[in-house]
Amino acid sequence: MGFDLPFNVIADGGGLMNLKGCLILAGVIFSIGAWGVVARRNVLTVLISLELMLNAVNLVFASFARMHANMTQSANNATAGENGQIFALFIIAVAAAEAAVGLAILITYFRNKETVDTRDMKELKQ
């Protein structure tokens, strides 16, 4: 797909750098993160894997924002493309808050129980 349009600034849209490639990459990264959340037993690694999943979602938002960048001419919405990137910015803000609170809970738990292993976290089961 060789589209040689005059107002392309960086990417030329050929080969793998297309919407499909970006979505598949995001899917692979999301799956790796989900694998870490499900399989790992260390709370720190689980939290890091959550960050991977949030990053994959950001990638999808940025891809679709680029797809909708030229909606200005067609729709009555002057900033259709930017809205996707702004949503990704909000996701980054929420991810930062989530990391701070999650790690604070982890520190408190470690001070009381001396462990960060999810196999030891079974007080509710007993």
């Binding site: 349009l5 297309n18 797809m67």
Partner: peptide
């Protein structure tokens, strides 16, 4: 894909 490739305005 066409919209994605011709995005930058």
């Amino acid at each position: 894909e066409v919209k994605f490739a011709s995005a930058i305005a």
